[in-house]
Amino acid sequence: MDETSLQKGVAERSATTPTRREVYEAGIRRRSNRIALISTVSVVLALFVLVPLAPGWEAVQRAFFNGRVFTATFPGLLEAFLLNVMIFAWSAPLIAITGLAIALCRDARAPALFPLRLFGIAYTDIFRGLPVVLVIYIIGFGIPGLGLPRPWNSPYIWGTLALVLVYSAYVAEVIRSGIDSIHHSQRAAAASLGLSDRDTMRYVVLPQAIRNVVPANMNLFIALQKDVALLSFIGPVEIFRQAGVYKSLYANFTPYVGAALIFLALTIPATRYADYLMNKQNKART
């Protein structure tokens, strides 16, 4: 096509003689880069030079950044983190399924399904309104306290249920907002083809809605990865609890720093990825 040769022509010209605007923009860019560099260097300098000058720095360093304690506890922390990963791995799909079911409950339009809709509303209101740790305590100790035999009273089962209850409420709201974001003309098009409401939801609305809310749900699941640690309140020795044990054995907070590093190693890439997806989606919309 002529289009490509045209573009090529433009590229060649700009390679040899930049336009006035390009010169101007390049100048602005150099200036911003310089300012960014200077300000970054000064902040880093302040952090690494000024903070250690503080009178209590040595004590803080010994209590929080203790190399000996770090090396002694880090492998144990990594091992304990496997439990977090496992709890996350079995909770996440359950949360996704339950969240979707609740979102569909809230979207039920038939009058016969009104109780379902009411249930969906009550569910999301209640479980979004409660602190996770409270739900974990109440369900994790409360339900087994009713006299369930082992292994049905396991804190893993009921702690997972607590996580599923709370997080599926959030996921349900996110999915519902995704459903609402699908333009009604899509439903109209499906209806005009004779598709049932059910098929319209399943084949037309949901696939688009869920795709739209992937980044928002990613953020929820990053939060879940952190909240898995709350299960330690009812017994399981995951990384946060293991760090607490080490802290008390060594009378030193360094294991918490180790645990924080392990969390960050996982959540930072996940967060960046979620942001990337979000940006991509925003670009696609405009």
Binding site: P144, L148, R150
Partner: peptide
Amino acid sequence: DVNAAIMAGQ
């Protein structure tokens, strides 16, 4: 909490 876990049979 330990007592709660004992009483819940966990």
